[in-house]
């Protein structure tokens, strides 16, 4: 049977239409499966991040518990023993009074140092006194060493939940400890302005891209992320260092206290 041109045209158009429809269907399926794969990758990433955050929080919790126990031990045991030694020294009747006074002073200093250490290790103390006060004490101690000139400028106090506050304080301690050990700085300034905390020094700075700095910074950044904060470091060799903690609004409640 001979087909008419109209019939042939219909068949050709139908064939083309079917082939195009199959191609489009395959493309749509490809897009669909790709989107599904993308969603599952994102979900996997989210779960991974969540797991890392939980792991970090657990680590920090264990660390805080250990510090709490050390603090308690210093306060209840070693501190008491030293106080007793000091008392005995004062009531001791001997001929070398000058030596006894010097020894008593040394023991007194040791008691004070231990008390401060105990306070700084104790998480309850940090929550009770507030970050400003414990920071002020920390900086006063540094100032008292005669090696550093320090300043604390509080514009707007930040209020964080106790758990986050302790993590932030530990990070500040780590930054200050790094300044003392590595920077060779003579000035340390801390500024708190709303949800931003800035620690600056006039030390020798460092090359931010150096891999040896990577792990410590990575660790700090991870801990910052755990409390909803962002850590930025501005530094260059011989230019000092500025460490900036930006706490996101969701992570901190801001209370304006004036100057």
């Amino acid at each position: 049977m001979q087909e008419t041109p109209a019939e042939v045209l219909t068949i050709i158009v139908a064939v083309i239409f079917i082939l195009v429809a199959i191609s489009v269907f395959l493309l749509v399926m490809l897009i669909y499966f790709n989107n599904r794969k993308l969603r599952s990758i994102k979900e996997r990433e989210r779960m991974k991040a969540q797991f890392q955050r939980t792991l970090l929080e657990t680590q920090l919790e264990v660390q805080e518990q250990t510090m709490r126990e050390i603090s308690q031990e210093i306060h209840d045991n070693i501190g008491q023993v030293l106080s007793l030694v000091n008392l005995n020294l004062k009531t001791l009747s001997t001929f070398d009074e000058d030596k006894i006074h010097k020894t008593s002073d040394l023991v007194h200093k040791a008691i004070n140092d231990l008390r401060n250490l105990s306070k700084s290790l104790n998480p309850e103390n940090i929550s009770k006194q507030g970050i400003i006060q414990v920071l002020r004490n920390e900086l006063d101690q540094l100032e008292g060493s005669g090696k550093f000139s320090t300043s604390l400028d509080v514009q707007d106090e930040m209020e964080l939940p106790a758990g986050k506050l302790i993590i932030l304080y530990r990070m500040i301690q780590e930054v200050i400890s790094n300044i003392i050990r590595h920077s060779g700085a003579s000035e340390i300034s801390v500024k708190i302005d709303r949800n931003m905390l800035v620690i600056a020094d006039n030390g020798k700075g460092f090359n931010n891209g150096t891999p040896s700095n990577g792990l410590g910074l990575q660790n700090l950044k991870q801990r910052a992320a755990a409390i909803g904060a962002e850590l930025n470091i501005e530094t260059a060799p011989h230019k000092g260092t500025i460490v900036i903690f930006n706490i996101h609004e969701s992570g901190a409640e801001i209370r304006s206290t004036g100057r």
Partner: peptide, 8 residues
């Protein structure tokens, strides 16, 4: 596996 963007 590496692509983070939609195929589109």
């Amino acid at each position: 596996e590496v692509s983070e963007n939609s195929i589109l």
